Amino acid sequence: MQNSHSGVNQLGGVFVNGRPLPDSTRQKIVELAHSGARPCDISRILQVSNGCVSKILGRYYETGSIRPRAIGGSKPRVATPEVVSKIAQYKRECPSIFAWEIRDRLLSEGVCTNDNIPSVSSINRVLRNLASEKQQMGADGMYDKLRMLNGQTGSWGTRPGWYPGTSVPGQPTQDGCQQQEGGGENTNSISSNGEDSDEAQMRLQLKRKLQRNRTSFTQEQIEALEKEFERTHYPDVFARERLAAKIDLPEARIQVWFSNRRAKWRREEKLRNQRRQASNTPSHIPISSSFSTSVYQPIPQPTTPVSSFTSGSMLGRTDTALTNTYSALPPMPSFTMANNLPMQPPVPSQTSSYSCMLPTSPSVNGRSYDTYTPPHMQTHMNSQPMGTSGTTSTGLISPGVSVPVQVPGSEPDMSQYWPRLQ
């Protein structure tokens, strides 16, 4: 039975679970980093996980050691009161100082060594604690504590007292930064006198190289990059290397530039699409467009005044059976039934097929058609009795279509119309 579990990581490298990497692998990681390889490249070359490479390099940059820390136990506290007071002093002298600059000053002034120097995250935590204590304490208590930490007896009751030896409130920041720059020169002199001055200088240079600022491109470089971006948004590694040799930039910087440029292009394309949609959409909808001609068919113009009344309900007709019959029939052209047409008796099958359309009241044959006459024609229609054979009435077949029909004066039988409509 094995005491430890061995495995293979996602890159194909072998590791022992819970145990640190061998010293030979750690040394190779540092050597590759000094030669300029990126952590992701080191991870692929040595088949070590990216997190492990970053952790080893980060500890090497901070402490200069590649040895693993002790497994188990607690780390001794490195942010001692003396170190905290120095950090507060540096922050007062130059409020814009960075944590890694404070760390360098602690090393250069001999406050800490490589073994007990606090990390950048520890210094940031100390600065946050100082800021929170400043908010919790009152103004007087804060000034007393700062005077105690600074070891001075001057008056701290006013704002300019934060910067000793100065009279203009805006000047101390520059003086403090100048003092810090002077301390940086002392850093070089002190570290050069040490035993491991060369190694420390190499480590600091490598650290500065990794902690780079934003790349500033010249106009020629920007023009070359934009020209390549117009050709393709995704250049391959050969195109990037050719462009890197042409404009004297690292291939990694060119790759990052193209990634950022593609993101910018997507944002601009989104804005262009929004403007295009806004320009195509009308600002207001016309009133006429809300009524579609496919839904509402136009009603033909009436030929006679009587045809303006298109349904039985508008003429005072309360018989719903006839109203439904007229509205359900398709529109037909106007025609006239003459008196000489043969009077065919209704076929029983045809009569039964339209039995649902006729009223059940037996008085329908005896009703006159003056009910369908509009009010303004009552006088004219009353002067001509319906009993004469020459009287013409208008029957409504569908809305908007008038059918003048000659009705025999002897017997106005409704059943004569249905064979004609089939």
Rank of each mutant, 00 (worst) to 15 (best):
S4T: 10
H5G: 10
H5V: 12
S6W: 04
N9K: 01
N9W: 01
Q10R: 09
G12A: 03
V14R: 06
F15G: 01
V16S: 12
N17C: 05
N17M: 00
G18C: 00
R19C: 07
P20L: 01
P20I: 00
L21R: 02
L21C: 03
D23E: 12
R26Q: 00
Q27N: 08
Q27Y: 10
Q27R: 08
K28S: 09
I29N: 02
I29A: 02
I29H: 02
I29P: 02
V30S: 05
V30P: 03
V30A: 15
E31W: 02
E31Q: 08
E31S: 11
E31K: 09
L32P: 03
L32F: 15
L32V: 03
H34P: 00
S35V: 15
A37Y: 05
C40P: 04
C40W: 03
C40Y: 05
D41I: 14
I42N: 02
S43M: 06
R44C: 06
R44L: 06
L46N: 01
V48G: 01
N50T: 15
I56G: 00
L57P: 03
L57S: 00
Y61F: 11
Y61R: 04
E62S: 09
T63I: 04
S65E: 13
S65A: 07
S65G: 05
I66V: 15
I66F: 13
I66K: 03
I66N: 05
R67I: 05
P68Q: 01
P68I: 01
P68G: 02
I71V: 09
I71L: 07
S74I: 00
K75L: 08
V78E: 01
A79I: 07
E82I: 07
V83Q: 01
S85V: 12
I87M: 15
Q89M: 08
Q89N: 08
K91V: 03
K91R: 10
R92D: 08
E93K: 13
E93C: 15
C94G: 13
P95S: 15
S96Q: 14
F98I: 09
A99E: 02
A99K: 04
E101D: 05
R103A: 14
R103M: 06
R105Y: 13
R105V: 13
R105M: 12
L106G: 02
S108E: 14
S108V: 11
E109T: 14
V111P: 10
C112F: 04
C112L: 10
N114E: 12
N116H: 10
N116E: 07
S119M: 02
S119A: 06
V120K: 00
S121T: 15
L130M: 09
A131K: 04
A131F: 12
E133M: 13
E133I: 12
K134W: 14
K134Y: 14
K134D: 10
Q135L: 12
Q136M: 11
M137Q: 09
A139F: 11
D140H: 10
D140W: 10
M142P: 08
M142Q: 10
M142T: 12
D144N: 13
D144L: 10
K145Q: 10
L146W: 08
R147Y: 14
M148R: 10
M148Q: 08
L149F: 11
N150T: 13
N150R: 12
